[in-house]
């Protein structure tokens, strides 16, 4: 999709500052860089911006917590309690310990989706690499939690199904379904956000500045729903891996 990429001001600024030292470091290792002034791709810059926003906003506002919360702390508690009640609904009472990863994933994806609506920025999730990263993190994490809960052999017994003589039939289906999970997670997120941005671009070429506004309002809703679905699916996968068969 090289035709759609135009250089953003922030990406150029970022590259001007950080590209030459990075290229020098890579040269020391022995990797030749083709374009030393365009080393960092836009989606990496944008996800770094999202990370900085999240760290500053959520890190600084959780410094001084009070018993009588300030308005900002109220909003934060609302977000955290929303995630927590979702996890308790899906996984059960033990789901609260998965809150850090699930909450971080949800907030990162939501802010990434929203960032594309600000002029001069793009959504990092509209590049396939970022959703694939998030989906692989979720994939590895729920397998790891399953192994931690049941032990390695006990977790492998999950794949065989309840009836022993049906196991040769069940195991390939289970393996395919497990590997299709990160694929569908990442492609869903990427396709929605990329399609949304493409739609806004096409509409803006018809009638700039006014006509894209309702679609951008819709894009806020889409970004929220996609982050929600990513979180819910990850929680369901974790619930499936952690659940004890009784």
């Amino acid at each position: 999709m090289e035709e759609f990429e135009h250089s953003l001001f922030i990406v150029e600024l970022f590259n001007k500052i950080f590209s030459p030292p990075l290229a020098y470091l890579l040269n020391l290792i022995g990797i030749e860089v083709a374009h030393p002034d365009k080393l960092i791709p836009p989606h990496v810059v944008m996800s770094i911006i999202v990370m900085i926003v999240l760290i500053i906003f959520f890190g600084l506002s959780s410094r001084k917590l009070k018993i009588f919360p300030s308005p900002l702390q109220n909003i934060l508690e609302l977000i955290i309690e929303g995630f927590e009640s979702l996890l308790v609904d899906i996984i059960g009472e033990e789901g609260k310990k998965f809150l850090p990863l699930i909450g971080t994933l949800g907030l990162f994806i939501f802010f990434s989706n929203i960032l594309g609506l600000i002029p001069g920025f793009m959504s990092p999730t509209s590049n396939l690499n970022v959703p694939v990263g998030c989906a692989l993190v979720a994939f590895i994490y729920y397998h790891w939690q399953g192994v931690k809960k049941h032990g390695f052999v006990g977790y492998l017994k999950h794949f065989a199904g309840p009836i022993p003589w049906l196991a040769p039939l069940i195991i390939p289906i289970e393996i395919i379904s497990h590997f299709s999970r990160p694929l569908s997670l990442s492609l869903r997120l990427f396709g929605n956000i990329f399609g949304e941005e493409l739609l806004i671009l096409i509409i803006a070429s018809l009638f700039p500045f006014i006509l894209p506004l309702p679609f951008m309002t819709l894009a806020i809703f889409t970004g929220l729903v996609q982050a929600f679905v990513f979180v819910v699916l990850t929680a369901i996968y974790i619930a499936g891996a952690v659940a004890s068969e009784h």
């Binding site: 569908s184 492609l187 869903r188 990427f190 396709g191 929605n192 990329f194 399609g195 729903v225 996609q226 679905v229």
Partner: peptide
């Protein structure tokens, strides 16, 4: 969203 995903696959 799960239904919409299939349409999105076709879009891709």
């Amino acid at each position: 969203v799960l239904i919409e995903t299939l349409v999105i696959y076709v879009l891709l």
